[in-house]
């Protein structure tokens, strides 16, 4: 029954998002599009952090690699094909995840956090220092990819509203895919690994392979978000792989409440909107320039007082009243 209620809430939220373009201005349409792409990013990381117990601080590498894949595969004055470039971007991420995952998964705990960060930084420097991706200036994507089926354009990605629809569809698809995956035997095994990996091994699970599979899936899904972001903004530069991007997405996951997929979506909305509010000069005047300070203080407070993220806010009073009797 609880699940049914959350399904209804979710359906309502998706409906609201689907209807939003009727009401929202261009600015807000772009903002929500960006947030939904970030929500895909956050959900993919939640698969690792929240469901498998792997705290990665290098997730931006996948985001960036997918963006660069689109940029590098786009012909300069023609439209790229979404049906080939999106899978290619995901495949590039999966490859990077497979190679680095085989290394980083040899470690755990604090080591894992540091090593994922270090490999993402390596990817950052590859794009920053070599001519491969235009160096620190990055690459522009002048023409948006096209999405055709049998010669007909399904969605015109240059059109704001239609691109919004694509991102909403993909976010929903990723949500449903992950929900399905987490309910499968594979997902159950990941939960077992998170709860007690050593016991999983002694029960006969090759836990390394399971974790690697989760890492590759998470990388490929993060690739969708990086692809969409590159498509939306029309350029890529090394900063999209920077560790700040990895930090932000981890904040989203924790803020929304780890181990709940809708939490990752809520976290993405909360963090980006918070940033927009804090940086709003109309409200905060000159102080808005220093929004990072307020954001930093808020993050510190969340770490100290809200260990379960925003999801914990709703749960706490209920628990208190149950205990209070």
């Amino acid at each position: 029954m609880n699940r049914r209620r959350s399904d209804i809430a979710l359906a309502a939220a998706l409906l609201a998002l689907a209807l939003f373009p009727l009401a929202g201005s261009t600015f807000y349409l772009q903002l929500v599009t960006k947030i939904m792409a970030m929500a895909i990013f956050a959900m993919s990381l939640d698969l690792l952090v929240g469901y498998t117990g792997l705290v990665s601080l290098g997730h931006a590498a996948f985001f960036g690699i997918a963006g660069y894949t689109l940029a590098l595969l786009s012909p300069q004055y023609e439209a790229a094909n979404l049906w080939t470039t999106l899978p290619a971007a995901m495949a590039a991420c999966a490859m990077f995840a497979l190679v680095t995952g085989a290394l980083v998964l040899r470690t755990s705990g604090i080591y894992f956090i540091m090593v994922t960060l270090a490999f993402a930084q390596m990817a950052y420097f590859v794009f920053h220092d070599t001519a491969l991706g235009g160096g620190s200036d990055g690459i522009y994507i002048y023409v948006k990819p096209e999405m055709k089926l049998a010669g007909r354009t399904l969605l015109d990605l240059g059109d704001l509203g239609q691109f919004y629809d694509l991102v909403l569809i993909l976010m929903t698809a990723v949500y449903l895919f992950l929900r399905r995956l987490l309910g499968s035997p594979f997902g159950r095994a990941l939960a077992g690994i998170r709860a007690n990996e050593q016991r999983m091994r002694s029960l006969g699970f090759p836990t390394f392979r399971y974790k690697l599979a989760a890492y590759v899936i998470a990388g490929a899904l993060a690739g969708i978000s990086g692809y969409l972001a590159a498509l939306q903004f029309g350029f890529v530069n090394p900063e999209i792989l920077s560790w700040h991007n990895s930090g932000i997405v981890l904040m989203m996951v924790i803020l929304g409440g780890m181990g709940t997929l809708h939490g990752a979506i809520i976290g993405a909305f909360a963090l980006v909107l918070l940033q927009e509010v804090l940086a709003n000069q109309a409200w905060f005047g000159e102080a808005a320039k220093h929004w990072q300070l307020a954001m930093g203080v808020l993050i510190v407070l969340v770490a100290l007082f809200l260990p379960r993220g925003l999801a914990g806010l709703g749960a706490r009073p209920r628990k208190a009243s149950a205990d209070g009797r």
Partner: peptide
């Protein structure tokens, strides 16, 4: 979970 460790379909990721 213990029984699943012996199952050949452990990697079917989309079945409940």
């Amino acid at each position: 979970l213990a029984a699943q460790s012996r199952a050949p379909h452990a990697l079917r990721i989309l079945s409940r």
